[in-house]
Design a protein around this nucleic acid. Sequence first.
DNA 1: GAACTGACTGTAA
DNA 2: ATTACAGCCAGTT
Length: 110
Amino acid sequence: MRSCAADESPALQAIWDVVCAIPRGRISTYGDVARAAGLAGRARQAGTALRLAPRELNLPWHRVVGAGGRIVFPPASREYREQARRLRAEGVTVRDGRVARAAMTDLSAL
DNA sequence: GAACTGACTGTAA
DNA sequence: ATTACAGCCAGTT
């Protein structure tokens, strides 16, 4: 069964679907996620979609970072620590608010 | 419906 | 390398 539940908004579901498709131990950016969801140039909407995403979806939101692999949250924030912790748990190297380029996923290849 | 906000990004100083 | 800023556009007030 689908791990991502459907939603009334096609755009939100499309984004969630893409995020769900990011393999474990890999990461992608807001811009790339938006593009893969058919919303090119709308990186912010990707962020908004993740903010609105219900926890019940078990969405791997931590695999989405800013352009260039930068974590978008303030380093002291709870969200930042959560994301860094989860990424490291998947074997992704997080250093100084950045993730290794090697962990980048080419969503167009999915 | 106008104004404000922000889980973004590219460019410039 | 860092910091600032303007453009962007969906969601909220």
